[in-house]
């Protein structure tokens, strides 16, 4: 050890070469984060007669590394709304604190928190759009579930660009490719949501989560599921995907250790 604390704990130049500081940009235009770091994958949701179900798995990945395996990506807002987050986890935490501050503010009134899921979705979409217009996006794709002002089930998405989209069933990320076709087959377009029961909706989401776990390498088999009805929110955060069958994997060739 030498007498220069500034160099303590640094990789030795004689071993690793001189430190390359070029990534620490000191000139040029101001830049913001342009890619997510720790991410959550799909969020899936279905409306049913009298409510909405939302589900995510409990994984936060760092690139391809399964970094955190108990991350709760369904966040509750007030008595009747849930936001499911895909994308950057730190941005999710920022938005979660934002939602908490709004909830505290709403509860100043004697009437309590009167913002419904639709109001919340409108707000979040505006936040996303403002941030992307500043070239400093919040790297998320969220589903907002709950009820609208008339008490009808509400499910809508908003993404990092401020894009909004609504449908009786929705999925973000990998789920947009893998879960939506399954949900469309189960609940065809012409089928009114009044004909979908809570049990059907929950079991459809569980099946989707299983397929996503099979095929999405950024997922795990621990998940959270929230059922939002007029009676309140039934949130389970430590569920396990049941009834897995990896028999199909035997037929997959070209990956792993086997060569033929």
């Amino acid at each position: 050890m030498d007498h220069f604390p500034g160099t303590w704990g640094r990789p030795r130049n004689d071993v690793y070469g001189a430190y390359d500081p070029t990534y620490l940009q000191t000139t040029g235009p101001k830049t913001h984060t342009s890619s997510p770091a720790v991410t959550g994958t799909s969020v899936i949701g279905v409306k049913f007669n009298g409510g909405v179900v939302l589900a995510t798995d409990n994984l936060a990945s760092y690139g391809s590394l399964a970094r955190f395996t108990d991350v709760k990506r369904l966040r509750v807002f007030g008595d009747n709304a849930v936001v499911g987050f895909g994308g950057d986890v730190s941005d999710m935490q920022y938005i979660d604190r934002l939602l908490e501050s709004i909830d505290i503010r709403e509860n100043y009134s004697t009437h309590g928190n009167m913002l419904n899921a639709k109001n919340l979705h409108t707000y979040l979409a505006k936040v996303f759009y403002k941030r992307r217009s500043e070239f400093n996006p919040l790297w998320n794709h969220v589903l907002v579930a709950g009820f609208d002002v008339d008490g009808k089930p509400f499910l809508s998405s908003a993404d990092l660009l401020g894009t909004t989209f609504s449908a009786p069933h929705l999925a973000t990320g990998f789920g947009a490719h893998l879960a939506v076709p399954i949900l469309r087959r189960r609940f065809p377009e012409e089928m009114p949501i009044e004909e979908i029961t809570r049990e059907e909706a929950v079991s459809a989401l569980k099946d989707c989560l299983k397929v996503l776990f099979y095929r999405d390498a950024r997922s795990i088999d621990k998940y959270s599921i929230a059922v939002i009805t007029k009676e309140g929110i039934d949130l389970k955060e430590d569920e396990q995907i049941e009834g897995q069958s990896w028999a199909f994997a035997e037929r997959i060739r070209g990956y792993g250790r086997q060569t033929n």
């Binding site: 955190f68 991350v71 709760k72 999710m92 935490q93 979660d96 604190r97």
Partner: peptide, 16 residues
């Protein structure tokens, strides 16, 4: 006021 007597999660905490 009542200061929480239990270990509180940090605001925005998502895992344990």
């Amino acid at each position: 006021g009542w200061d929480c007597e239990a270990e509180l999660a940090v605001d925005g905490q998502v895992g344990s």
